[in-house]
Design a protein around this nucleic acid. Structure first.
Length: 501
RNA sequence: GGGCCGUUAGCUCAAUGGCAGAGCAGGUGCCUUUUAAGCACAAGGUUGAGGGUUCGACCCCCUCACGGCCCA
């Protein structure tokens, strides 16, 4: 066992002492008749004077010894219940097991009848108790009080690095962290239910891919030893899901992990949870409507309202969301009219005049994207769809009729953050092949934006792909928004951190 | 990648060049309806790692590791 500190050595000795006293510190079975919340409800529902017996289990979160009586709180997944132990009831020997050998953080089981103390708290008058699992390391728990009904924690376990590295301890002592992940689960359930109700089927496509694609990102590379083949961890699901439309599955979605070998930031984790759906016979306008309805449904189901607080702003997710075309969004906020600059060189000069210094090699599309990121994105607090994007940064989207350089694409923003990305999918195999070739020409071989040619995808498309609208959204970012968390690390259970040493 | 800030007891934090402290947790007592229970006493440290300056370093300098915030 690892090096233990004094506190841990003492607790290990207490576990041995329990064993000597005939109480196994890690028994095989537990018994529960009520959760703590159920016990409280049962007591309140019972007629006055009729006894309610209960056996509850959970972690000891407080212990207050007062001579021959002891008060303690046990916490389970539902809440907390106060235990009341009297030496006169339990006998000196049994009582001593609790008062001398039980510690904060231990998992215990206690049986007795419920009553109300003179301060009004529903409590369990304990007639028997046992250890369920002795905790050796003390939990990094602060001390709590209730002020005006609000729970106030003193010296709470708050160091972000320690919390992420030891998420188990973070979850154990910070109930609001547990709530974030319950909310996250509700968000995913809500999205799934919404899409199922709209006739979509959930599918699973390869995570290990021989050719990566569907997004502009660097992949992680791995290797299959037996096959002597390099494989990529997927950066998106797009090209596989659209193959399914060729196969006649008209509405498909996948919720799963994407991997991008890029920087880590408050809104980027190397692996993150993505939702993508593809809908035959829909275009980006249909998808926009579906998107705002889906996000609103997720908000209602996950947090009970479509009006949320984020970063000091009140955000109303109720449909319909504002719609703004990309050209006016940029013009209004930067004074640069991208339509007046049909070439990369001209746009670059306009940006230089505004004090930017874009890279010489940037395409016009990349320049527009940087204007969007710099001027528009931070200003989009209320949910907004920005639509009609440059073709050269959207190699899988269909061109707008009559506007060669523009594609039918939108991104959804809220809270100053990109939430989702969608387009009318390109389904013309000749055009698609030309786009792949264009990408190869316009971007250097080592450019992360480069899309490798996927011959099999083109073969699928040549069999005929129905017109369709596609959509991708980061579930983590949606969860950030709905839980009011400022960083992606707060909504991922085990976020990526560098190893120490 | 750059800038700034941080890393001290199990947790939360003090100490700015001169004996490293507090609250909580933990220990020993007292206490039969408490709830941040209370009171008393005692204990707890490789100050992230390595190097340097100095009579003397948590503190100043350098390098490194990890994290946070901001910028790219």
């Amino acid at each position: 066992m690892a090096e233990l500190n004094d506190l841990e050595r003492l607790r290990l000795e207490k576990a041995e002492a329990l064993r000597r006293a005939g109480m196994e510190p890690y028994p095989t079975t537990a018994k529960r008749t009520h959760t703590t919340a159920e016990a409280q409800r049962a007591f309140e529902a019972a007629p006055e004077g009729s006894p309610v017996k209960a056996t509850v289990v959970g972690r000891l979160r407080s212990i207050r010894r007062m001579g021959k009586v002891t008060f303690s709180h046990v916490e389970d997944g539902d809440g907390r219940l106060q235990l009341y132990l009297r030496a006169d009831d339990l006998g000196a020997e049994k009582t001593a097991l609790f008062t001398d050998l039980f510690d904060l953080g231990d998992f215990v089981q206690a049986s007795g009848e419920l009553f109300r103390t003179k301060t009004g708290e529903i409590s369990l008058h304990v007639r028997d108790f046992t250890m369920l699992a002795k905790a050796i390391s003390p939990l990094p728990a602060g001390k709590e009080e209730v002020v005006d009904g609000e729970r106030v924690v003193h010296a709470a376990f708050a160091n972000p690095e320690a919390r992420y590295r030891e998420r188990y301890a973070d979850l154990a002592v910070n109930p609001e962290v547990r709530e974030v992940f319950r909310t996250r689960a509700r968000v995913i359930n809500a999205v799934r239910a919404f899409l199922d109700e709209h006739g979509f089927i959930e599918v699973e496509t390869p995570i290990l891919q021989p050719i990566y694609g569907g997004a502009a990102a660097q992949p992680f590379v791995t290797h299959h030893n037996q096959l002597h083949q390099d494989l990529y961890l997927r950066i998106s699901f797009e090209l596989y899901l659209k193959r399914l439309l060729v196969g006649g599955l008209e509405r498909v979605y996948e919720i799963g992990r994407d991997f991008r070998n890029e920087g880590v930031s408050f809104k980027h984790n190397p692996e993150f949870t993505q939702l993508e759906f593809y809908m035959a016979y829909a275009d980006y306008r249909h998808v926009m409507v579906l998107t705002e309805e889906m996000v609103a449904a997720a908000a209602r189901q996950a947090v009970g309202t479509t009006t949320i607080e984020y970063d000091g702003h009140t955000i109303d997710l109720t449909p319909p969301w504002r719609r703004e075309d990309l050209r006016s969004a940029i013009l209004q906020r930067s004074g640069i009219d991208i339509a007046a600059h049909p070439s990369a060189e001209s746009l670059r000069r306009a940006m230089l005049a505004k004090g930017h210094d874009p890279a010489e090699s940037s395409t016009r599309g990349k320049l527009i994207e940087s204007l969007l990121t710099h001027y528009v994105e931070p200003a989009l607090i209320q949910p907004t769809f920005i639509y009609d994007y440059p073709r050269d940064i959207s190699p899988l989207a269909k061109s707008k009729p009559g506007e060669l350089g523009t594609v039918e694409r939108f991104e959804g923003y809220a809270g100053g953050m990109e939430l989702c990305n969608a387009f009318t999918e390109l389904n013309d195999p000749v055009d698609q092949e030309a786009r792949f070739a264009e990408m190869g020409r316009d971007y250097a071989a080592d450019d992360e934006e480069r899309h490798p040619m996927d011959e099999d995808y083109l073969r699928a498309m040549r069999y005929g792909m129905p017109p369709n609208g596609g959509f991708g959204m980061g579930i983590d970012r949606l969860t950030m928004l709905l839980t009011g968390r400022p960083t992606i690390r707060e909504v991922i259970l085990f976020p990526h951190l560098r190893s120490k040493e």
